[in-house]
Design a protein around this nucleic acid. Structure first.
Length: 346
DNA sequence: AAAACGGGGAC
DNA sequence: GTCCCAGTTTT
């Protein structure tokens, strides 16, 4: 029996019952694939439920406000996924008359859809013979075949894509793709894979060579930079505060936050008071500044460590341009801000 | 080719 | 603490 058939047999016996496995509706599959990019199933599951409930069709998503889409995405991270999802929904409705693209090449044209996602949708929804290559596929194939090519290089991608494309079951590409991913996620795990019950343990090159722990090969970790964030939380006499939308490129694009003062080093009370006095909005105002979190909050992103302080600024005046603190929970915010709002409870 | 882009799960 | 997750886009 060949590898493809064995993989599918294993999948038949071991697959999880997940909501997107009970449909081939391309809108639902697309949603699930975007949500699951760089995201574990357990983390993405509630978001899939929320999106299919609030936006049951691509028309509902296209007609939504971006702010509401971001709000529903809040906490999942990689927010460009939500913005691209929304933009692509509009494109499908307005340019393609609501008709979801049905070939790999056309699906690939959607924003936020790369080779992996286009392959997944094309195979699952339209039975196209397009092999997926995700983190699970890299891991499973690198171990079984003992491939030491680094996966995060162009060469590596081409090699694994070609191998997967050669292995795919042309009669059931959708099942094969999901089988190899489920196999990587559940049995051929990064740490402590279940080699003792693996259907390939007699042929697995890495297992025989004792190199399971070294595969797949990945080139150097990206370095992490440290930043110092100071969020200014205004509290006015009329129960308002100031929040602003992040603009331009960088993290948390289009999400909201309290006014941010970034400093080179950890900021002192004196430095913050000085900065605040220069703000237009506080000109001629009397205010009191106190530090909310005694200990710096370290918020870790994939490539930045944000050492964060929340400064509470109590004003003895009203804030005409402020946002009522009752409405603050309507705005999409990064989880760092969301956790603060929750705990501070205004 | 390398860096940027989030947050959480598993160990 | 570390690594990595049903990757894509920008530089």
């Amino acid at each position: 029996m060949n590898l493809s058939k064995q993989l599918i047999n294993w999948y038949t016996d071991n697959k999880r019952d997940l909501p997107w496995r009970n449909t081939t509706n391309p809108y639902f599959i697309w949603l699930s694939e975007i949500i699951l990019q760089q995201t574990q199933v357990v983390q993405g599951l509630p978001y899939y439920t929320a999106f299919t409930t609030y936006y049951p069709t691509v028309f509902d998503l296209a007609n939504a406000d971006e702010q509401d889409v971001l709000k529903l995405w809040q906490g999942l991270g990689y927010y460009s996924r939500a913005r691209n999802l929304h933009a692509s929904a509009k494109y499908i409705v307005n340019v393609l008359n609501g008709q979801f693209p049905d070939t790999f090449d056309d699906i690939l044209k959607l924003k936020g859809v790369g080779d992996y996602t286009a392959s997944a949708i094309a195979s699952i929804c339209f039975n196209q013979i397009t092999a997926v290559v995700d983190g699970n596929v890299y891991r499973a194939l690198s171990r079984i075949y003992g491939i030491e090519t680094a996966i995060n290089t162009g060469k590596g991608f081409k090699e694994f894509k070609a191998l997967a494309q050669q292995l795919i079951d042309v009669k059931q590409p959708a099942t094969f793709n999901q089988a190899i991913m489920e196999f990587g996620a559940r049995l051929c795990k990064p740490k402590n894979p279940d080699c003792n019950i693996c259907p390939f343990n007699t042929v697995c090159v890495a297992l025989q060579k004792g190199t399971i722990g070294e595969l797949p090969v990945k080139l150097k970790a990206n370095k992490v930079t440290k930043k110092h964030f100071n969020f200014i939380v205004m509290l006015s006499k009329d129960n308002k505060t100031i929040i602003e939308q992040r603009q331009g490129s960088g993290i948390w694009q289009n999400l909201y936050q309290f006014p941010l003062i970034e400093t080179e080093k950890e900021a002192t009370h004196e430095v913050i008071v000085n900065e605040i006095e220069n703000l237009d909005i506080l000109k001629d105002a009397t205010f009191d500044v106190s530090l909310y979190n005694d200990k710096v909050i370290v918020h870790k992103l994939s490539h930045q460590h944000l050492n964060t302080k929340f400064w509470i600024v109590t004003l003895d005046q009203e804030l005409s341009k402020g946002v009522s603190i009752k409405q603050i929970k309507d705005y999409p915010v990064p989880i760092l801000i969301g956790n603060f709002i929750e705990k501070f409870n205004f």
